[in-house]
Computed example of a mutant assay.
Amino acid sequence: MNDTWNAPDLGGKVAVVTGASRGVGRGIALALGEAGATVYVTGRSTRTGERTENMPGTVEDTAEEVTRRGGKGIALRCDHGDPADNAALAERVAADQGRLDLLVNNAWGGYERSAEVRFDAPFWEQPLWRYELFEASLRGQYDVTRRLVPLMLPQQSGLVVGISFSDGDIYLGQVGYDVFKSAADRMCRGMAADLRKRGVAALCLHPGFVRTERVEAAWAAMGSGPASVVHSPEYVGRAVAALVTDPQVMERSGQVLSTGDLAAEYGFTDVDGRRPPAFRLEGRMSLATRMHRLNKVVSASSGQDR
């Protein structure tokens, strides 16, 4: 198959994508840039400072690529676990634009320090700091949203997208992880209820098995190639772009949606022309076990002891 995506016109639209120095956030920002949007790219990894987990990618790298593709990328160093950083972000967007059309809550610090204790260990062997990483990630999403949504209210339009993952009643393999990923879905539903009369939609979007920098590093260390269900980060970005331009998006507000299902419905493909279906855990190892193995391989291959 060939890449059949025709980028929609998002010229004049203003977006904030959190956690966009790499991974899914970067893929979303790039797709929005290709559609012509102005994208505020946030994250903790910068060219002049530290990079989280020593992984490649910075907010400046992503912002420059957004601009190269036809949008306008604006890089902002932001720790979303810090309320002061979130307040500064909201003030900056308000001063620059006076409005906001799209917020993508992608930042998630819950995989950090994963090699210190098995990610899929039973809850009584889990350190409290891991729970606190999950908690800070969800709290950051809540804080960012409450600060940025007021920039959508005057025009009575806008979209909040939470990036998460759950699979019905299937346990994700780690108590804290399962609780907070389910909570992220539930938070979107609650926000949608509060926003419904203001013309702003809020929903949760589930990627599949994404070929991120972390996953690629693990494959390189293991000497194995991608699974057939894997997709690029930009596949998720194309789903977000389709939702932003859907005139009926309010009908989806409060829902939990899958990238693969949206690809089939809206007719877009991944960058390689394939259309991977919605990712399901049934018949596969739990997501916590998958992440534990990936993190362990990445840490060992880079000589890190995190």
Rank of each mutant, 00 (worst) to 15 (best):
D194Q: 12
T212Q: 05
V160F: 08
S164D: 02
Q156L: 00
G158Y: 06
R186H: 13
G162M: 08
V161L: 03
R146G: 08
Y142N: 02
V210W: 07
A183G: 06
V161Y: 01
M191D: 04
H206I: 05
F209W: 12
P154A: 10
V215R: 07
M152A: 09
I170T: 15
A184W: 01
R211G: 07
P207H: 04
D169L: 07
A202H: 03
K197E: 15
P154N: 09
V144Y: 06
V161R: 07
V215P: 00
D185Y: 02
G173H: 03
A183Y: 01
K181H: 09
L205I: 07
C188L: 14
S166H: 05
V210Y: 05
L195H: 11
F165I: 09
F165C: 04
A202W: 00
A184S: 06
S166M: 03
F180C: 01
G190S: 14
A192I: 13
R186D: 08
G162T: 13
R214N: 03
P207N: 09
V160P: 00
A183D: 04
V161I: 10
F209V: 06
R186T: 14
G158Q: 04
P207L: 04
Q155C: 02
V210N: 05
D185R: 00
F180K: 00
V215S: 01
F180L: 13
G158R: 01
A193P: 05
V175A: 15
V215N: 02
D169V: 11
M187F: 15
V179G: 00
V200E: 00
L148N: 05
D194Y: 14
V161D: 02
S157A: 12
K197N: 12
H206L: 13
P150L: 03
E216L: 11
M191E: 13
L205G: 10
D194E: 15
A201T: 05
L153A: 09
P154Q: 08
A201E: 06
L203M: 13
Q174R: 11
D143G: 10
G168M: 03
S166C: 07
S157F: 00
Q156R: 15
H206E: 11
D194C: 09
M187H: 11
V215T: 02
E213I: 00
G162K: 00
A183S: 12
D143M: 12
R146A: 13
D169G: 01
G168D: 10
K197M: 12
R211F: 05
R186W: 06
G208P: 02
V200W: 01
D167Y: 03
L159A: 03
L159H: 02
V149D: 05
L195Y: 10
V215W: 08
R186P: 00
R186F: 03
R211E: 11
F180H: 08
T145C: 14
R186K: 13
R198N: 15
F209S: 14
S166Q: 11
P154W: 07
R196I: 06
L159K: 01
S182M: 00
A193V: 15
G173S: 04
L195I: 13
A193L: 15
L203A: 05
D169A: 14
T145G: 14
C188Q: 14
T145V: 09
T212M: 04
G208T: 11
